[in-house]
Design a protein around this nucleic acid. Structure first.
Lengths: 351, 351
DNA sequence: ATCACCGGTGGGAGCGCTCCCACGGTACCT
DNA sequence: AGGTACCGTGGGAGCGCTCCCACCGGTGAT
């Protein structure tokens, strides 16, 4: 009636100690086996593994977290309301990459929305409690205090788009400059001469870089840059409409538009249609993101593709390195860890 | 140079013990204040709160979890691939309700996808480690082993739609029977006489209940139920097309269609259009879910609305009760805890 | 005056793990 | 033969908290 059967006494979950007893070894040895330490003989390892299997042992994460001072969890922080998260394919693609890369590990991913002030306060509290080993920060605006909070708390973090050229946090980004440049070079090669640009929000660094690419492509081809052809947008469809209307009023002779996002391009397209302009015959149109919008537009739209899923994967890589490096309190030289991935122009019939 | 300043020695986070010392009380008392126990005098409470503020004390969750055997986290388990999660507004609405209700508490929400076999194995491991206090289960099919695993592990769980009339888990559902019935009653009141029904997957209990509602509405109005007018679908657009084609072949005289989901209704509409039938003049159409599809369809479609956000809120309520009740190991009588929320018919021009 | 009671409090024990030091044994040197 | 090195191992200490029992002094009943 005493110690017998698969589970030990009182129906509770088995502990390290019980596994050790069963395998006839000490606690330390079981711990080493569980954590994959190489300093265990094969025979002992086998015995421990057998005991683990027999008892159905599963480590107690809370105890481990307390003793080892880590949580085995990382947070993906989205500083936006849920709504935008679901509306934009960007996040779902990124999540896919992150999830894929993380499934190789024992790490748990937490998805945290911090759109409202209230949510942000909760998040600050959460981070102060060190409930995650690291943080992935996506879609951060230039003046966001979150990155500073993270470095202050000494929590490893990776940001999905640098806030500026002087970004101090490790970051992963796509080549916005190259993307903007290739879009314009493509339009030039199609014979377009008066190419307008609807920009994204200019407090987003990536949007600025696309403008830089636009400019340089024109200059490199020996054209002048006409500031009248550059109209700021805000990444929304309505913003795209407004910008397009403005551009047409100013330069009715334009023969191409490069929009800083597909959504804005969709807005621009509506205005072009309403004005009776044909795409691409009268005005060629190129978007950015290569989202479902681009594929399903009438006509299907040329767009710059960013490898978002790959970006997610690389962010995890960086973050895990960051976490591993910080463990033995190395405080090593803060070498710049910034990854930039290439974009690709997907050509369709709108240009 | 010794103990001084806001933070205590060695830059580490302050502990309960340090707060106690600062406030001139014992550890137990600080714990009581932190956890809101009433058995503390006002003066003592104030002193402790001051010390907490001065030191910037934040409880160590790992230590708490270990000592108290709880995690203060619950999981929202989605047994679908990420893709479907993002594609269907159902999940985003549910998440909104869940998040809203949970923000009142200290609980952390974990979003876990378990679409692939691999992910499901990881989830099983995760649950076995008791890393959450409770589980919210959405979109579960009749033969899913997850609910049984949860009861076996004695983890509190709430399911978003009962698997059958004999569901043992606490559940929250909308009134599928009433929804189906109201759709048909509406069509009858519009003068329709030959009303077809495209059902959802019949291994989903809610889909069955909608059929029951369809039947009873007809019977109650003194009509007979013609089995030829009931055609199974599978919740997809293509399934809706197939079902509609089949129905038209069998009963070209039908004058109304009630589809078990908006997506299937969209498929049915395409077929009706192709056959040159006008909506609602020749055939009236009613969908289910009141999704964006219904609002944006041409013509805008009458549809049965489910209060999904509210369902999310109620699920959290139930789960928290469940967790609280289980704490002192009461093992009380398993009274049925099943919530059913009313649906609402949203009338538009398709009927 | 004596006792039972109760609100308020302090602090020991212990949750299950990791970390690390110490120990015995073998192998290889001198 | 003695010394040194290192591998594999056992187990003490301690992570920061909660739980619970013991204790203290003040009340009201006897």
């Amino acid at each position: 009636m005493a110690s017998h059967g698969a589970r030990s006494r009182s129906g509770g979950r088995p502990t390290l100690e019980e596994v050790a007893a069963r395998a006839g070894v000490g606690r330390g040895t079981v711990s080493r086996v569980i954590n994959g330490s190489p300093r265990v003989s094969d025979a002992t390892r086998a015995a421990v593994e057998a005991a683990v299997a027999e008892l159905g042992y599963v480590p107690n994460t809370a105890a481990r977290a307390l003793a080892a001072n880590r949580t085995d969890a990382i947070a993906l922080v989205v500083p936006e309301p849920e709504t935008r998260f679901f509306a934009e394919p960007y996040f779902s693609d990124m999540l896919k990459g992150v999830g894929a890369e993380l499934s190789e590990t024992e790490m748990q991913l937490l998805l945290i929305f911090a759109g409202s002030d209230r949510e942000r306060r909760r998040l600050a509290q959460y981070l102060a409690a060190h409930r995650v080993d690291g943080v992935l920060l996506v879609s951060v605006h230039a003046d966001d205090p979150l990155p500073d909070l993270l470095s202050q708390l000494e929590i490893p973090a990776v940001i999905s788009g640098p806030r500026s050229a002087a970004e101090t946090l490790p970051s992963v980004d796509s080549d916005n400059y190259g993307g903007g440049r290739s879009a314009v070079e493509h339009l030039l090669s199609r014979g377009c001469r008066t190419i307008a640009h609807i920009t994204g929000r200019l407090d987003v660094y990536g949007a600025q870089r696309r403008v830089d690419g636009y400019r340089d492509a024109l200059l490199a081809a020996g054209h002048e840059v006409d500031e009248q052809l550059i109209q700021p947008g805000d990444f929304t469809e309505e913003g795209g409409r407004r910008a397009m209307t403005e551009l047409l009023a100013r330069r009715p002779d334009l023969d191409a538009v490069f929009a800083g996002s597909d959504v804005m391009a969709a807005g621009a397209r509506q205005v072009l249609r309403e004005e009776g302009l044909r795409i691409p015959d009268d005005v060629a149109l190129v978007g950015y993101d290569d989202s479902a919008i681009a594929r399903h537009m009438d006509p299907p739209m040329t767009s710059v593709r960013q490898p978002i899923e790959e970006m997610g994967r690389r962010m995890i890589d960086l973050l895990l390195t960051e976490i591993a490096d910080r463990r033995p309190a190395v405080t090593r030289e803060l070498e710049r860890r910034q990854v930039v991935l290439a974009t690709e122009l997907v050509t369709r019939t709108s240009s």
